[in-house]
Design a protein around this nucleic acid. Sequence first.
DNA 1: CAGCATCCTCGGCGATACTG
DNA 2: CAGTATCGCCGAGGATGCTG
Lengths: 153, 153
Amino acid sequence: MTIDVTGISPPLRPAVLELAAQMRADGCQRSDPAREIPALLGDRWTSLILLVLDMGRWRHADLRRVLGRLAAEGRISQRVMTEKLRTLERNGFVRREATADVPPKVSYELTPVGRSLAGEARRLISWVHAHRAEIDSARTAFDADRDLDPQPR
Amino acid sequence: MTIDVTGISPPLRPAVLELAAQMRADGCQRSDPAREIPALLGDRWTSLILLVLDMGRWRHADLRRVLGRLAAEGRISQRVMTEKLRTLERNGFVRREATADVPPKVSYELTPVGRSLAGEARRLISWVHAHRAEIDSARTAFDADRDLDPQPR
DNA sequence: CAGCATCCTCGGCGATACTG
DNA sequence: CAGTATCGCCGAGGATGCTG
């Protein structure tokens, strides 16, 4: 990841290079960090799935029901449920067990890495919790300003 | 957030209630955790913007150029750049400064909360780095299995 | 019961052009 | 230089129906 600094004002170039070095140290050779987070936890259901599975082993149908109950709105569709769990399994975060008979019995549980990722998700959620009041007041202040203050930006 | 446990197998009900209590303790009264992460860091550019702004104050045009250089592919469109920064500003993560003249000079820097969130983003990226090898080998193992093993799931 | 194929909707994002 | 409006694309995800 060698960064092209042409077109960037010379005083900023060291900062850019340092940033690139830092990102490289963080393991971003192959894709930018902007993609890491969305790719793992950035979708609608994955973080909630991790939190639920962190409680133990779940049967498919029960998991689906619980996700629907815990979500603020909406249920997870059957198609997406399978898709998300398949991705988690492929990444090594979830272990899937199934019987070959009809009807099949499918259950899921986290692997150690999966539990570790669930911890990260929980940490991020706690961060939001810890800063919720601050964020909310920033929002209302911002919106109030925009209302009384119709100057161009 | 009182959870409806009807339809959930009785042995699992305590787990569901505990989970709900835990989520409540994490501050999820109003929206499910599945939304917190996507809402803040789940999009294509926000985490990268935070990382870059964490290096100091940036002029709009420079920031845009740097984002384009650091991203694995593609540049951020002018429209989205303004939109993302506006959201960050509204949440209280970014302070924007602008002159009223033409052409305007606009610059951005993180607030203390913003720096804190940038730290969280960096932490998550490091997590991915630390587990990259493990994740990669899980993926190749999974894909290999699927190829040789065309049984129904 | 769970996987899969199909169809559809909606939102995120890029591109472009115009304005102050 | 930066903001905004408009347009169009594409992918995430919901709904439905069939199958083992």
